Amino acid sequence: MRTALVLGTGLIGTSAALALSARGVRVHLEDRDPDQPRTAAALGAGTEEPPEGPVDLAVVAVPPAHLAPALLALQRRGAARGYVDVGSVKGGPRRELAALGGDLGTYLGTHPMAGKERSGPLAATADLFEGRPWVLTPTPTLDTEVLNLALELVALCRAVPVVMDADAHDRAVALVSHTPQLVSSLVAARLERAEEAAVRLCGQGIRDVTRIAASDPGMWLDILAANPGPVADVLAEVAADLDETVRALRALESADEAKRGAGAAGVEAMLRRGRAGRERVPGKHGAAPAAYETVGVHISDRPGELARIFADAGRAGVNIEDVRIEHATGQAAGLVQLSVEPEAARVLTQALREHGWSVRQ
Rank of each mutant, 00 (worst) to 15 (best):
V267R: 00
Q331F: 07
G317D: 08
E268P: 04
R346L: 14
G277Y: 03
A290D: 11
A255Q: 13
I325R: 11
D256R: 06
P303Y: 01
G261P: 00
S300Q: 05
I325E: 07
V267N: 02
R278C: 04
H327R: 14
R280I: 00
R324D: 07
V267P: 01
A311V: 13
T294D: 12
A269G: 04
A311S: 15
R278K: 09
R280A: 09
R278D: 02
P342K: 10
P342L: 07
A276T: 03
Q337D: 13
I320N: 07
S254R: 00
Y292T: 08
A333Q: 14
A262C: 02
G296I: 01
A307T: 08
R275Q: 09
L252D: 07
E341S: 14
A290V: 12
A345T: 09
H285K: 10
E321D: 09
I309K: 04
V318A: 05
A328T: 15
E279Q: 11
V318M: 06
G334Q: 10
V323D: 02
E305Y: 04
A287T: 07
Q337S: 15
R280N: 04
E321P: 03
V267C: 05
V340K: 08
G317E: 12
F310T: 12
A328F: 14
L338I: 05
A264N: 05
M270C: 08
E257L: 13
V347L: 10
Q337W: 06
G304P: 08
G314W: 03
D312M: 11
A262Q: 11
A288R: 14
E268F: 06
H327P: 03
R260I: 05
S339P: 08
A290M: 07
D322H: 01
K284L: 08
H285A: 11
R324Q: 14
A248C: 02
G283W: 03
G261K: 01
A287H: 15
E321W: 00
G314E: 07
E293M: 05
V318N: 02
Q337P: 08
A290R: 08
A248P: 14
T329I: 14
M270Y: 03
T329A: 15
E343H: 13
A328P: 12
G296V: 07
T294M: 11
G317R: 04
I320H: 06
E268I: 02
L249R: 09
G277L: 05
Y292Q: 00
G304H: 12
A332K: 14
G274K: 02
A269L: 01
L249S: 06
V297S: 01
E343M: 09
G314R: 05
E253I: 08
A332I: 13
H327I: 14
L306T: 09
A316M: 10
G261D: 04
G277K: 03
E341N: 11
A332F: 14
G266I: 01
L249K: 08
P303M: 01
E293W: 05
E268M: 10
E305F: 01
G314A: 07
R324K: 03
A333G: 04
G334K: 00
A307C: 11
A291F: 09
